[in-house]
Design a protein around this nucleic acid. Structure first.
Lengths: 217, 217
DNA sequence: GTCTATAGCAGGATAGAC
DNA sequence: GTCTATCCTGCTATAGAC
């Protein structure tokens, strides 16, 4: 009585969301057909229309029920570091951010999905981008600013501080999202050794950036 | 005797490549139909198959005849800065790189296309990624390393230096590619004032990063 | 809620006239 | 080289049995 194809423990609606997310992330909205999704989820062709109305709505629902909650887990991971060291040093905070995106609470597969979907929305924003920007990007940036504010020189303007945080995001996302390019260029695999190496580099580089940005431009 | 729809000065093959690039960048490979491309280029439906064999091959040809040459222009732009100040200071070099991607030799529209195509390939590498990595990414990184090498502390390992350069790429690409997100978060439009602001920030932040990375990790 | 069958349309590619 | 007409496949969405 073994489970045949995949674990069919969840409700069809949940399986559809899972498979849809994986496929949308990998191939993009237009690169995936509802046939492919329903087949991967072991559901009937008509199930997407029954549960979600249409394909577009399923895509949006993927963001609401999968992407956003996962982004919250990343945020929570950083929050725990902040709570553990109160107040955290800039190095601790940057390391937490780097780890959250390069390692952290997500599996490799989850992380890839998450970032692929985000970059697809950045490339061509759809209705889902609204959610991503307002529920995740903006509040997370704000939160980091508030935490970092007390430990940087006082003459750093709000805008300078924000640009520093965005720069850290930029580096972290690049090393994570563009890992196929980074591997090519450096000739290194993304094993745990190289990941630690990258995290250490990001922390060091960013600390220097913060310091020099603070010392009167 | 006015030209009707668009400038129809070039050969159909060239127009197809231009329109195909614009559409592939904006909507992705699967998001665009050959009907749409031929129509935009004012050509017949069959022209893509006649000139390129099939859709996939047109996509590849877009990279060979449009994307790569444009990347070379960006590289040339940086080279000119290097040639003008010999040897350039790290600040001058970083500024050149930042300008090359955020302003530089490309029009806004060209730059958007260029980066959208690149990020699409990073998201889901196709045959074209091989070209992008070997003809552009790798040699450009190497070139920058050689130029930057004499002006950084000697105890910076090759790998550390490379990671610094990749970090600069990461920031620059993030501020350029993710401009819709950056605008949301900062509340600022990407006018020339904000662009200069970003370039100045990137230079300052990166200089700090280089400096601290060099001073014994 | 789940399934089959199918409508109705858009996709890539090609044949063959000119 | 260019164009029209067309093939055939695959798509989303829906109707209606169960």
């Amino acid at each position: 009585m073994g489970i045949k194809e995949k674990q069919r423990v969840n409700f069809p609606k949940e399986r559809l969301l899972d498979e849809a997310e994986a496929l949308f992330a990998a191939k993009g909205y237009h690169g995936v057909s509802v046939r492919e999704i329903t087949q991967a989820a072991g559901c009937n062709l008509a199930s997407i229309n029954y549960h979600f109305g249409n394909k577009q709505n399923l895509y949006l629902e993927v963001f609401k029920t999968r992407w956003i909650p996962r982004a919250m887990r990343i945020r929570e991971y950083v929050r725990e570091v902040i709570a553990a060291h109160r107040p955290p040093s800039p190095a601790e905070l940057i390391e937490a951010v780097a780890k959250a995106f390069l390692g952290g609470p997500l599996s490799d597969e989850e992380r890839r999905r998450h970032q692929q979907l985000m970059f697809r929305e950045l490339n061509r924003p759809s209705e889902a981008f609204e959610l991503v920007a307002e529920k995740v990007m903006r509040p997370f940036s704000k939160e980091l600013m508030e935490v970092l504010r007390p430990c940087v020189p006082g003459d750093l303007s709000e805008e300078q501080l924000l640009l520093c945080i965005l720069s850290i995001f930029g580096m972290v996302l690049y090393f994570s999202f563009a890992q196929v390019a980074v591997s090519r260029i450096t000739g290194r695999q993304y094993d745990s050794g190289f990941r630690s190496r990258l995290i250490a580099h990001i922390v060091q580089f960013s600390l220097g950036g913060l310091k020099l940005t603070g010392s009167g431009e």
